[in-house]
């Protein structure tokens, strides 16, 4: 089936098998491997992307459901060579270790800060409920999201 999807501002028209998951479409058809497949059961959040303004777990979305939509992945957050405020904050606060969860964490954090520009620590932890990190624990990730929110406010 033919679908039209705009990813990171670029329009694509591709033929997909209806059972293709959005995450595989992004990684394999478009070569955007920043988005990861973690648990593949909508628990871990490594596959989070933004679709039409809200975050989705792209392992639990068919590519055909994304037909006609606007998608932003980690690759599209900032122009090449620059970092978004959230990316910058993860770097400065050591909000990652192996990096596997990072793209999903950042995509979730961007939406979280958009909806709530001045979140409390509890709200950040609650907002990251659907993203699992198995390296660092969440301390520096939460610190990074709070720092990013502050940077965006100022």
């Amino acid at each position: 089936m033919k679908i039209q999807v705009t990813v990171n501002g670029k329009a694509h028209e591709k033929d997909v098998d209806p059972r293709t998951l959005l995450v595989h479409f992004l990684r394999e058809d478009l070569g955007l491997t920043g988005t990861k497949v973690g648990c593949d059961t909508s628990q871990c959040g490594a596959c989070v992307v933004n679709m039409d303004g809200t975050t989705v777990k792209s392992c639990t979305c068919l590519a055909v459901q994304a037909d006609g939509s606007q998608i932003t992945t980690i690759e599209g957050l900032s122009p090449k060579g620059e970092l978004d405020a959230v990316q910058e904050a993860f770097w400065n606060n050591h909000g990652l270790q192996c990096g596997y969860c990072t793209a999903g964490m950042i995509m979730t954090a961007v939406e979280l800060i958009d909806k709530n520009p001045n979140p409390t620590e509890d709200q950040v932890r609650e907002g990251l409920k659907g993203n699992i990190c198995r390296c660092t624990g969440y301390h520096n990730i939460v610190k990074a999201v709070l720092a990013a929110a502050e940077a965006k406010r100022s």
């Binding site: 909508s42 959040g45 809200t54 975050t55 777990k57 979730t108 939406e111 907002g127 659907g130 993203n131």
Partner: peptide
Amino acid sequence: GDPQVRNR
């Protein structure tokens, strides 16, 4: 669920 599950 979580924010992404609630979004869909």
